[in-house]
Amino acid sequence: MPDPRTGAGSAHAEGSPPVIAVVGPTGSGKSDLAVGLALELDGEVINADSMQFYRGMDIGTAKISMEERRGVPHHLLDTLDVTEEASVSDFQRQARAVIDAIHRRGKRAILAGGSGLYLRAALDVLEFPGTDPAIRRRLEHEAASEGEAGLRSRLERLDPVSAARLGDTRRVIRALEVYELTGRPFSSYMPTREYVRPTVQIGLEVDRDVLRARLAQRVHGMVENGLLEEVGRLESRGLRQGKTASRALGYAQFLKVLDGVSDVAEAAEETIVATRQFARRQLTWFRADPRIAWLDWQDPALLERAIAACR
């Protein structure tokens, strides 16, 4: 019988080993460590990078190649078309089902990624309110015709905690939608730091100056490997219409190259700046979780220390 808190079966309730999650900022080596752990601990990897769900978004997301997977099964990669919208609640259901299936096979489940809310959705007690397309459309129309100010003012009256926390129109609309649909403030659905099953989180501690240089080098490497051409292919498959995919780092910037608004060098520099800012936000998010065991990303004994933490 499904667990009402998790939406999953009871496979994890008795005797399953802890879930492993490898977390940290973009460019810190999470995918490589996850593969190493899987090879040593007889595990399988579950992607928790929201932009790696998208088919064809390979270069710009630094998606792990078949060769780099070294025979380790990887799950929840390439599950969406670029026109589809990524959903945290869908990911929660899918990831927990995959974890249960991996455990039934007697393997270790290893999540790897830097999308903080997606990781929390898979690992922690977290309830998602439903959606109502009609309410959403009405609020979107109101925002487009009258501006965000009125919506934000309404949210400040109904849910001041969310109003202070949410920075863009899309999230303000979502908070108002939830309030209309459920009668509860959106802030009441915020996650608690309570695992749904035993879990070990390993965070990769980075040297920020080294990471800044590494991220710049990585973006230049993406350009050399054909990022602009990849964006062009995906544009013909509806990238611009995708609410999530079109905002991905690199893709948003290189769509402007296709439009003639900027050149490749400008787009690369904008991508570097945005990626560094994103890495800082990731570090802030993960640093707030006291349950994470931090290991030096450049430690020659990183894999051995990570294995010890998992055991």
Rank of each mutant, 00 (worst) to 15 (best):
G250H: 06
D32I: 01
A252G: 00
D81H: 11
E67I: 01
Q92D: 08
P2N: 06
G24S: 12
G147Y: 13
T244C: 04
L303D: 12
Q253A: 11
R157Q: 15
P160R: 11
R291D: 15
G114F: 01
E44R: 00
V19Y: 09
E194R: 07
I202A: 08
L76I: 04
A252D: 12
G43M: 07
F128G: 01
R287I: 00
G167W: 04
A245E: 09
Y179H: 14
E127F: 13
A143P: 12
R120M: 08
E194K: 03
L176C: 01
D209G: 07
L211M: 08
I307S: 11
E67V: 08
S31L: 07
E40Q: 15
T271P: 10
N47I: 00
M222E: 04
D90I: 00
P17D: 05
R174L: 01
E68Q: 15
L204D: 10
T271S: 13
E270H: 06
V206L: 00
V98S: 08
S115I: 02
Q52L: 03
E68K: 14
E194Q: 15
V178H: 05
G238D: 07
V82T: 13
R108L: 08
A48C: 14
G106S: 06
A13Q: 11
Y251N: 01
H75F: 03
P300M: 05
I59F: 14
R208I: 02
R237N: 08
G242R: 00
S188L: 09
R152F: 04
E235V: 02
G203M: 04
K107Q: 11
V223P: 01
K243W: 08
A134Q: 13
A308Y: 12
F128Q: 08
A101E: 15
L39P: 02
L126A: 09
T192A: 14
